[in-house]
Design a binder for these strands. Structure first.
Lengths: 295, 295
DNA sequence: TAAAAATACTCCATAGGTATTTTAT
DNA sequence: ATAAAATACCTATGGAGTATTTTTA
C-alpha cells in the first residue's frame, strides 16, 4: 500500500538528488529513507530513481510520478490548512506573472486586484512559466497569470481572454498590409530567450519551425525586441497588449495584422486544483479581464 | 501526521454513514476504524463526523474535508495507474453529459469523438451536474461535458464555448422583439426540475429570484418545456443549441433574443485534475467545439 | 579510495484484533 | 432493549535506528 510517507521521501530525494541529504531533510536516517523508497518502487513495480551517477536522478517513470506525488502532498497540506483555518479567502494572495504579460496588464489591473485582496499581504512576482508552475506546486505561489495552455497534474487553469499577435517590422521594409501566418519564417524572426513561452508560441506559428535557424541572440524582454525592430534589425511577433506601450508609438516600427484566423495566445490563471479559494480566483480573473487595456 | 489510511477510512464512513459498515468495507474491525478516525480528528483539531444521529453524518468541517480526501485518494490511485500503465491515452473514455446538452451536441459530435478515442470502450452517460462530478471524483467517469463554472477541489475545467440563452414564448403572446434580462420574472418562467443546472441559471438571471415563486411543476426535459410553451402555458429560457431541434420549428413558439449583453452559459469539460490525458481531453474539447451545430 | 547507497539486524511505536462498556434511540 | 460507537488491552507488523557491506566514480 502506498503511503504519504513514501511520497514525501520520494519528493525529498527528487529535490536533493541525494539520499543522505534527503534523509537529513526528512529528519530520519539514510537507510530508513532507502527502505521506504525501495518499498515504493516495489509497490509501483517500477524504478523511479537512477542511482548510477554521482547525483541521483529521476528515471522516465520517476519524471511522471514525482509531480503527481508533489501534487498529492500539496493537497494534503491544503487539507490540513482548511481544517485549521477554514476555507481561505483571497487574503495574502501571492501572484506570479510571466514577463511578457506583467508590464502590460499589471499597471491597470493592480488597483482592482488590491480592492479584492485588501492591501495586506499581497505580493507579485515575475518569472517564466515553468518557474511559476513549480512555485504553485510547492505552494510558494497561489496564482499565476500566464499564457495557456499549461498541462500539469494538480494544476488547474482558468482562461481569461485571447491576446492576438501582430507582426512588428521596420517601417522601412515593404510589407503587405495583412499577412498570413504561412508567410512567417522562423529564421526571419527576432525572438526572446529560451524559456519564454512567447518564443515557443512564435516558433510554433512558423511552418513547423524546423528549418535550421541561424544562431539568434535571444532578447530578454519585449522592450529589447522593440528597439531591435526599430533599429531595423528584423521583425518580431508582438502580443496585442504590448503594442501600445512598446511598439505602436515608434514611427520606425510598422505593425502588421494577420489575416484571419488571427494567431493569438490565451491569457489565463493557473492555480493548484486544491486551492479552494476558487471563487476568489474567479473574481481575480474578472478583475484582470475587466481592467485590461483595449478591452 | 495525516496518513492515507485515515483518509481512506474517512471516505468510507462518509460513504456508508456507518462505522461498522465502513469497517467491513475496509476489511478491518470497527474499533480499528474508529481509532483511525479519532486520530485524524485529533490531528486536524476538528470533529469531522456527527455520531449523534442513527446515521453518521458529516459536520460542516467534514463537508469541507471529505471532498479533498476523496480527491487525494483519486490522485493516489491515478499515480499507481500511471506507474502500471504509463500515461494513459484517451482509450476507454467514459464521458458524462448533462441532459440539457446531450441531445443537442452529441449527435453531431459523436463521429468526431469516436475518431479520437477509437471505437473500443467508449461510453456516454447522461446525468446531472452533481452526479457527474461525484462520478469524476471517484473515477467512474473520465470527463464530463457540462455548464461551467463548477468549483470542486481536485476537479479541473476547460471552457469550450458560450451558449446563449433565448426566451421561448407562445407565439400568441405580444412580445418586444428584443428583451432585457431585467424583464424576466422568476414566477413567469417554466423551469426544469430541481437539480438541473439550467434551472439555477434561469433563476439567477431573474432579478435575484427571491420573489415567492408559486409552486411550479418542474419539467424533466427541455422537450417537455417546449410542448408546454407551445401549448401556451408559459415562457421559458432556452439555450441556443436547443433552438433548432426543439423550439424554432414550432410555429406556436416565438423565439426572442436578449438585448446585449446576452445571458449565456459556458459549456465546458470537467475532469480530475490528475487525469493526465489532458492533451487528449483538449482534443476532445476541440472536436466538440468544432462539430457544434451553428458554430 | 572515498562517497554514497544497499543490506543486516534490532527495537519500538502503532495499526489492528478481541472483549467489553457506554451511549442513544 | 438494542444497535452502534467508544474504550481497554493485547498482539504483531513495519518504520526507524545503528553497524556494516557493496558499489562506482
Amino acid at each position: 500500500m502506498i503511503t504519504l510517507r513514501q511520497l514525501r521521501y520520494l519528493a525529498a530525494v527528487a529535490e536533493h538528488g541525494h539520499f543522505g541529504r534527503a534523509a537529513e531533510d526528512c529528519a530520519i536516517s539514510q537507510p530508513s529513507l532507502s527502505q521506504q523508497i525501495a518499498e515504493l518502487e516495489t509497490e509501483l513495480g517500477a524504478r523511479l530513481l537512477d542511482r548510477s551517477g554521482r547525483k541521483v536522478t529521476l528515471t522516465d517513470m520517476g519524471k511522471a510520478i514525482v509531480p503527481r506525488a508533489q501534487a498529492i502532498l500539496s493537497a494534503v497540506a491544503d487539507l490540513s490548512k482548511v481544517a485549521a483555518e477554514g476555507e481561505p479567502g483571497l487574503h495574502s494572495l501571492r501572484l506570479g506573472v510571466i514577463p511578457t504579460i506583467a508590464p502590460f496588464l499589471l499597471p491597470a489591473a493592480l488597483p482592482a486586484i488590491r480592492r479584492i485582496t485588501g492591501d495586506a499581504g499581497f505580493r507579485v512576482h515575475e518569472a517564466m512559466t515553468h518557474t511559476l508552475l513549480d512555485e504553485i506546486r510547492d505552494n510558494t505561489l497561489d496564482v499565476a497569470l500566464l499564457a495557456l495552455p499549461v498541462s500539469e497534474p494538480g494544476i488547474e487553469t482558468l482562461a481569461l481572454f485571447e491576446d492576438r499577435f501582430f507582426l512588428a517590422a521596420p517601417a522601412a521594409r515593404r510589407m503587405k498590409s495583412l499577412i498570413d501566418t504561412t508567410d512567417l519564417k522562423a529564421d526571419e524572426l527576432l525572438l526572446l530567450d529560451d524559456g519564454h513561452c512567447l518564443r515557443d508560441q512564435a516558433l510554433s506559428l512558423c511552418g513547423d519551425g524546423t528549418g535550421d535557424r541561424r544562431e539568434q541572440f535571444g532578447a530578454t524582454s519585449l522592450s529589447t525586441l522593440a528597439s531591435l525592430v526599430a533599429a531595423g534589425l528584423g521583425q518580431t511577433l508582438v502580443p496585442a497588449m504590448a503594442l501600445d506601450s512598446l511598439f505602436a508609438r515608434d514611427k520606425r516600427i510598422r505593425i502588421v495584422a494577420f489575416r484571419k484566423p488571427c494567431p493569438a495566445r490565451t491569457v489565463g490563471l493557473a492555480f493548484r486544483s486544491t486551492s479552494s479559494n476558487k471563487k476568489a480566483i474567479r473574481q481575480l480573473g474578472e478583475a484582470i479581464t475587466a481592467s485590461r487595456p483595449r478591452a
